[in-house]
Amino acid sequence: MTRYRFFTATTLDGFLADEHDSLDWLLSQPTGEESILPYDDFLAEVGAIVTGRSTYDWVVAHESDVEGAWIYTQPTFLFTHRAPDLERDGVTVVSGPPAGHRAALEEAADGKDVWIVGGGGLAAEFARAGMLDELFVSIAPVTLGAGKPLLGGSFDLELLEHGTNGALLEARYRVVGERV
């Protein structure tokens, strides 16, 4: 069965990125060899990727080996209201509620997990649709005071596991549901 997972990092005060969509705060954090969910192990379980436009633009600008290329090999669904400037292989542009794309996401995942790469508002939309099973978050010992929130909304979570990775506190949660 396909799981929907939000694997991300946040500041201690709950921001994914600063007001300018920068992740400099994260990239400066020391990490170790130990993790409760090593990135490579996590990525091996991912069959499809979901991203919002700000995260997509940041990844294209900062993480691509080839300028402008998309770095993931898994089929990717870009949720946006504005089409990107350039089409990229393996990236499908979609809009609207997540539930409207559930069948396509699960078909693309082919029995593996769907990774909601970011951002927090998009992850919250998936959670409200009952399509977010887990939140795995690395918490950095830094505060920003403002920026893009970790999870846009009010949700109950159940702690499943915790640990450390260098300076980062790691926690894996089951998404119980939206708070009413």
Rank of each mutant, 00 (worst) to 15 (best):
143 T>E: 14
62 H>D: 05
86 L>Y: 12
100 G>L: 00
66 V>H: 13
180 V>G: 15
167 A>W: 07
46 V>F: 11
26 L>C: 04
65 D>I: 13
88 R>A: 08
109 A>H: 10
120 G>C: 08
145 G>F: 01
57 D>A: 02
93 V>E: 04
105 L>H: 01
92 T>A: 08
145 G>M: 03
30 P>Q: 15
156 D>V: 15
82 R>E: 12
126 F>K: 01
68 G>I: 04
23 L>Y: 02
101 H>R: 03
138 S>N: 11
105 L>R: 04
156 D>G: 13
82 R>P: 03
46 V>W: 09
162 H>W: 15
6 F>A: 04
93 V>N: 04
2 T>D: 05
171 A>W: 08
19 E>P: 13
26 L>N: 05
6 F>W: 11
160 L>A: 09
173 Y>I: 14
152 G>K: 11
161 E>H: 14
93 V>K: 05
30 P>C: 14
91 V>I: 04
129 A>S: 02
89 D>M: 11
101 H>K: 01
54 S>Q: 15
48 A>F: 01
25 W>M: 02
123 A>G: 10
133 D>P: 13
87 E>R: 10
166 G>N: 10
39 Y>I: 08
82 R>A: 10
11 T>W: 12
54 S>L: 11
17 A>H: 01
31 T>D: 10
77 F>W: 01
96 G>L: 01
138 S>Q: 15
121 G>Q: 12
56 Y>N: 05
133 D>L: 10
82 R>L: 04
88 R>T: 07
46 V>Y: 06
127 A>D: 02
9 A>Y: 13
127 A>M: 03
6 F>Q: 05
20 H>M: 07
47 G>T: 04
178 E>V: 08
125 E>Q: 15
159 L>H: 03
66 V>W: 11
68 G>F: 01
159 L>R: 10
103 A>C: 03
100 G>N: 00
104 A>F: 07
163 G>R: 06
63 E>W: 15
149 P>D: 05
81 H>C: 06
129 A>T: 00
148 K>L: 12
27 L>W: 15
173 Y>A: 13
146 A>F: 04
11 T>C: 09
58 W>V: 13
121 G>K: 14
120 G>D: 04
147 G>L: 01
110 D>T: 09
29 Q>S: 08
90 G>V: 00
119 G>N: 06
126 F>P: 01
50 V>M: 02
171 A>K: 11
108 A>K: 00
108 A>M: 03
85 D>H: 07
60 V>D: 03
140 A>E: 03
65 D>R: 10
70 W>G: 05
152 G>A: 15
114 V>N: 03
